[in-house]
Design a protein around this nucleic acid. Structure first.
Lengths: 233, 233
DNA sequence: TAGTGGTCTAGACCACTGA
DNA sequence: CAGTGGTCTAGACCACTAG
């Protein structure tokens, strides 16, 4: 893959921040493809915040993946941990069949009222300390069951490799809320502390919803990195 | 613009969530362009989270802009307020020449140590209540001056329309921190309260940095909406 | 089978940068 | 001026979906 090759060259400083990539025509020659094909790859790198194209000059490297790791990408906790090289642990606290509690999420998703789900509650540790409470509501209509063993590893991995379901996108919302009794207990917080709450819906490539989730983070451990491009009008 | 036209049709429910757009070939006919041109537009809508393409079936509408307005887009506060139709006010608290305080931002940007900037501190009100403290450090080398009048309106508007500088992208980081004395005073908080802090760097289309900024939000008013797509491997 | 999106091509013309 | 990226085209072949 051309994308993967350029990506690794950027991440490994073959092309450093501030450098220009070879021109589109040159890259087309080098990889033996047409210029439009190269442009599609460069476009992806642009969106990811790795390069900036300068008209008449070339494509300049402006970032790497390793520099802002725990980014806003759609990655599972397991994947992020692995990339970030952190000492991480997951403990499954609860796993049971349930109905989707309709008060938990936006009123918008009325289609899923009382839908049967597998409810998972997991506690994430960083350096032996609990930092995140993860709750997942996996729709049984899409994924009938989630083995306890898999839940302790990676949900995404289970969906994609064992169930052959392709995760495509997610909508998430970040807010800050006062810690509940349960938050305090599980994350070792005090009554006046707050947690960062991320609620979201995850969907597949065929646009079916597969799960709703809520992630409650210790505020002092929370960090969210974002890259945004301006809409050009 | 084809992009704008499809966008407005999605936002105005001409194509509703769950509907399929006309096929790529049909759209190419309708707009009198080639299919590849249509595909580029649909690709942008896909990235924005408005449609999902289903192989062999078509492009389904999965979201609108109005449904998740204050998104992770790169927009100024003035622009977001306008779109969201909020009763908003901005008060300029301070504006002076300064040197970029090197302790404020990542150690990475060493190029800018002690660079001359225009420092702005603004307080944002929502429904008469102060909710955000915005600090900007505008590089004088790129934008020599920022009139007080413009600062009270929109910085982005001033950059783009008066200075003819094109904003291209920004890197931002969200954290939660305990409120400083100044936070408490300006945002009417108590000593044990926290604020959501967004720090960022804004760059132009020619990859020059134009400003650093820090945005301190009342935690109870903070909300961040994100759409993320899974990298396909 | 016909229709859909996924990918790629070879070529054209433009606007912009820099020497 | 030559070289760069920006945009668009007309056509090809593929894999997938549905009837």
């Amino acid at each position: 893959m051309i994308h993967a090759d350029l990506l690794s060259k950027i991440n490994n400083d073959v092309y450093q921040i501030g450098d220009f990539l070879p021109s589109e025509n040159r890259l087309a020659q080098l990889y033996g493809v047409s210029r439009e094909t190269i442009r599609k790859v460069l476009n992806e790198l642009t969106i990811s915040g790795l390069i900036q194209k300068l008209k008449g000059k070339g494509s300049m490297v402006i970032g790497t993946q390793r520099s802002d790791l725990p980014a806003s990408k759609l990655m599972s906790y397991a994947e992020i941990s692995q990339k970030a090289d952190l000492a991480v642990q997951t403990r499954l606290l609860e796993r049971r069949d349930a109905a989707l509690p309709d008060f938990v999420f936006d009123s918008l998703n009325t289609d899923f009222r009382q839908a049967p789900v597998t409810y998972l509650c997991r506690l994430r540790y960083l350096d032996e300390r609990p930092v995140i409470i993860d709750r997942n509501y996996v729709l049984k209509s899409v994924c009938p069951d989630v083995p306890a063993g898999e839940a302790e590893k990676s949900l995404f991995h289970y969906f994609e490799h064992d169930c052959h379901l392709q995760i495509a996108y997610a909508k998430r919302q970040i807010t800050v809320e006062t810690a509940t009794k349960e938050d305090q207990q599980l994350l070792n917080l005090h009554s006046q502390d707050v947690v960062v709450v991320i609620r979201g819906v995850t969907s597949l490539t065929d646009a079916r919803v597969i799960e709703f989730n809520e992630s409650r983070h210790r505020a002092d451990q929370f960090r969210f990195v974002d890259f945004a491009r301006r809409e050009r009008n």
